[in-house]
């Protein structure tokens, strides 16, 4: 099935928005629920993408693997490796205040990028890993539209998981820690442990997003995981959509990705000698947008609402 023109663009747009929605949901688990400030999203994103790329590509002497594994094994690996990174960072920072977590995560993201760039034996360095296949490759089902459906499936799946986590007693503890740490500690909750759990689950979801990205884009290289694309856009999505609100995270991903792609179309009309300036102008606009949101509507488009608690719903029956 070949798509043409606008519909092909729309499919690609929605797939990207879906992948960003997964990443934003992961960030929402960390920041929106628990108040953990992770500005190293790009690091977890990159680890997920590279893991699945190494696991699923056919063998190559240029980098470790590939192992030619199936799609789902690649995604599983992506989730596992990013969780491991999450455990390490979480263990170091779970007891510290959130500013330190921010600094530590930005450090780990930069070091992961340095590592991916310099360790040729593992990642093929700056040349990146090409030819990451979509699932159902070489079958009749293989098309951009099928992959959009796969991504949509994952978005829905992750959404239900995090939404369930949000209303659960576990999610309630996370929000309690976010709102009032001493009170939650006084209520006998092990703050460091809950924080670590939320951080690892969030990291795992980001790794999944990275895996989905690798199979969609077909090519991973360190440049794709610079702080701008890998971290900043996702933060703007979550803040714009409404941090703490899972539907807000998805809505924010679609809207901000729309704005970001829209400005690309606008600056694409400029003559090509201005292309670097045009890219800078787009960043300037999206950065200004973030500041306007923070000043005028910090709760986002869909503010967080107190959930209907599961226990209360059962009482009514």
């Amino acid at each position: 099935m070949e798509l043409s023109g606008f519909s092909a663009y729309l499919v690609s747009f929605l797939t990207f928005a879906g992948i960003y929605a997964v990443l934003a949901l992961g960030l929402n688990m960390q920041w929106g629920f628990t108040g953990q400030f992770n500005i190293g999203v790009a690091g977890f994103f990159a680890v997920g993408a590279y893991t699945t790329a190494i696991l699923t590509t056919p063998g190559s002497p240029a980098y470790l693997g590939g192992f030619g594994m199936p799609f789902l094994v690649g995604l599983g690996g992506a989730v596992i490796t990013s969780s491991i990174i999450g455990v390490i960072i979480g263990l170091i920072t779970a007891r510290l205040r959130t500013d330190y977590l921010a600094i530590a995560t930005i450090g780990i993201a930069e070091i992961i990028r340095l590592f991916l760039k310099n360790e040729d034996w593992l990642t093929n360095g700056v040349r990146g890993i090409p030819a990451v296949q979509r699932p159902f490759a070489d079958t009749a089902l293989d098309s951009p539209l099928t992959y959009l459906l796969v991504v949509a499936l994952f978005v829905v799946g992750v959404y239900f998981l995090v939404e369930r986590a949000y209303v659960s007693p576990w999610g309630r503890v996370l929000r309690a820690i976010r709102e009032n740490e001493p009170a939650s500690a006084a209520a006998g909750k092990d703050i460091a442990r809950f924080r670590l759990q939320a951080f690892v689950v969030g990291s795992a979801i980001m790794g999944l997003g990275g895996g989905l990205y690798a199979h969609f884009f077909g090519f991973v290289s360190p440049e794709a995981f610079r702080p701008l694309y890998g971290t900043f856009l996702i933060w703007v999505m979550l803040i714009a959509g409404g941090s703490g609100n899972n539907r807000g995270a998805i809505l924010g991903a679609v809207i901000v990705w729309g704005l970001w792609s829209g400005t690309e179309m606008l600056t694409g009309m400029l003559p090509s000698e201005y292309s670097t300036q045009a890219a800078a102008l787009r960043v300037l606009l999206i950065g200004a947008l973030l500041q306007v949101i923070l000043v005028t509507r910090p709760e986002g488009i869909l503010p967080e609402k107190a959930p209907r608690l599961i226990a209360r719903r059962r009482d009514k029956q």
Partner: peptide
């Protein structure tokens, strides 16, 4: 912590402005 987010955004805005003005 909202200031933290804002300053992170400001970092990118300044860098983009530098690129825009000086290349």
């Amino acid at each position: 912590v909202i200031l933290l987010i804002s300053s992170f955004g400001m970092a990118l805005v300044i860098r983009a402005a530098v690129q825009l003005i000086w290349g």
